[in-house]
Amino acid sequence: MRYKKVLVKMMDAVMLNCDQASLLISKQLDGKISWIDKIRLKLHLLNCEFCNRFNLQSKKIDEILKISPDDLSHKCIHSHKIDQKSKKKIIKEINKLSDNQ
């Protein structure tokens, strides 16, 4: 009986809940996590479908936010265009600048 209690306690120390696991997933995307956390996270991901999805989705979001301007114009159909009025304003401002120089 006593061994069982100790075992449960040990398992609790190693096993992560989803709040902790998703925090580590996020941390791992931003930098490094310790090797012990890596192992705990791997163990958790072995049988948590939700956290696996959170991992993939967070990676996707990061990847899309990091997109380069060329990829953006190649991969996306919708592109934002600047107003003609704003274009004219920019040209005016630049001309003002060169007049002052």
Binding site: L65, P69, S73, S79, I82, K89
Partner: peptide, 26 residues
């Protein structure tokens, strides 16, 4: 301008902020 603006729109929170960023860039 369009190329820069499109990029700015994806990285910045509003139309106005993106326009300002493009103007400042030029």
């Amino acid at each position: 301008a369009d190329y820069l603006y499109n990029y700015a729109r994806y990285k910045l929170p509003s139309k106005e902020i993106a326009e300002d960023a493009v103007q400042e860039t030029f």
